[in-house]
């Protein structure tokens, strides 16, 4: 028995030592060394749910121009679509994915043992709440999910100012949200309501909200916002505030509302353990955290996690926009996501 305990202790100690060693090795690698190693790999397979024409294409152009000889292959779609792919690839040990990002991808990848530790050189300046202490994820982009309105359908004096205003009977059947069962969708909204109002009052609020017959659009929040712009719905409940800014810039009749609390989420990048091009993936993550990469993200009107680069529209951030945000941590998500989904199913499905 004692021998067994000793062996287990030795095993975990060894694992920890190895982890530390690999983390140290990873951070010790300079950008030039990383580039050399990545060039030998030639490409990187990036699985991402980011909107391609808004931000993925400029990122690809920027990265490939800075690091000739390395191409990015993008597999897009909704987070759950490519997550399913990565998990089944891993099951048979035939991983194609090198790197991924998304609000809720970390948990399942961590559970499957696919989240590799990587302390990117450029992650040093990223605030602690935007990165994992063990380096298993680092946020690239910060998100705030808020209600948005069609300005042709909602008169300025009717604009909801608070969550309570959404219960007004005149919005019945005119509110939509996405079908993403992640923190970036209805479960995230439910989580934030329950944590800010408390279980009892929160549930009472959600029960009232359910009477509004909210339409679930089986897509991501960008599609919900498009339907709001098209006038199919007056209010999109859980939408990215920067998407409204991008569309309004093109003349679309849309506006996001600084209603507190917003859902805080982030594109958490994860280096896939065992992917075919680990160095190219590290190079990409490091690039996205660099001032240069963050500049590309900023130009696309997204909010870089790198605090040195402010978003184009400063009001997108709570401290400048006059709203508060609650961001569920990966731990809370792991513990409670199923509960939030259950509430969604009970009240809204």
């Amino acid at each position: 028995m004692t021998q067994d305990t000793f062996r287990r202790w030795l095993g975990s100690g060894l694992a920890a030592a190895l982890l530390l060693a690999s983390a140290a090795a990873a951070s010790a690698q300079s950008e030039a060394e990383l580039y050399e190693a990545a060039k030998a790999e030639g490409s990187v397979n990036w699985y991402t749910g980011l909107v391609q024409n808004q931000v993925v294409r400029p990122i690809m152009a920027g990265f490939e121009a800075k690091y000739p000889g390395i191409t990015i292959n993008v597999t897009g779609g909704r987070d759950n679509d490519f997550l399913t792919k990565i998990l089944s690839e891993a099951k048979a040990g035939k991983l194609e994915a090198d790197m991924t990002d998304g609000p809720s991808v970390f948990g399942p990848l961590k559970d499957a043992g696919l989240a590799a530790a990587y302390h990117a050189e450029n992650a040093a300046g990223v605030p602690d709440q935007y990165k994992d202490a063990n380096g298993e994820w680092t946020a690239l982009i910060v998100y705030f999910l808020v209600p948005a309105i069609n300005t042709e359908l909602v008169k300025p004096e009717d604009e909801p100012k608070s969550l309570q205003d959404l219960l007004d009977p005149k919005w019945k059947g005119k509110i939509a949200w996405s079908g993403e069962m992640t923190v970036g969708g209805p479960p995230g909204f439910i989580a934030v309501v329950l944590s800010s109002m408390g279980e009892e009052k929160g549930m009472a609020y959600l029960r009232e909200l359910a009477k509004q017959e909210i339409a679930t659009i089986p897509s991501n929040p960008r599609v919900v916002l498009d339907q709001v712009i098209a006038g199919q719905y007056a209010i999109g409940l859980v939408t990215y505030n920067h998407h409204s800014v991008i569309s309004a810039g093109k003349g679309a009749p849309v506006k996001w509302l600084p209603i507190s609390p917003a859902i805080g989420a982030m594109a958490r990048s994860v280096l896939i353990a065992g992917g075919p091009h680990p160095n190219a993936a590290k190079l990409l993550i490091n690039y996205l955290l660099s001032p240069e990469g963050a500049e590309v993200i900023r130009e696309a009107n997204y909010i870089p996690a790198n605090p040195a680069i402010e978003p184009k529209e400063p009001k997108l951030k709570p401290e400048n926009g006059g709203f508060t945000a609650v961001a569920p941590t990966p731990e809370e998500e792991k513990q409670d996501l199923q509960k939030w989904i259950a509430v969604y199913k009970e009240l809204f499905q």
């Binding site: 397979n45 909107v51 024409n53 292959n73 779609g77 897509s219 916002l225």
Partner: peptide, 27 residues
């Protein structure tokens, strides 16, 4: 194909679906 297409074996419908579901409807 949405499940079977890999990083290097994309087909048209999948590309369209991915762009559709990630919100690039006009394109």
């Amino acid at each position: 194909s949405v499940l079977l297409a890999g990083a290097r074996s994309q087909v048209m419908a999948v590309a369209m679906f991915e762009r559709w579901s990630s919100g690039q409807s006009v394109e």
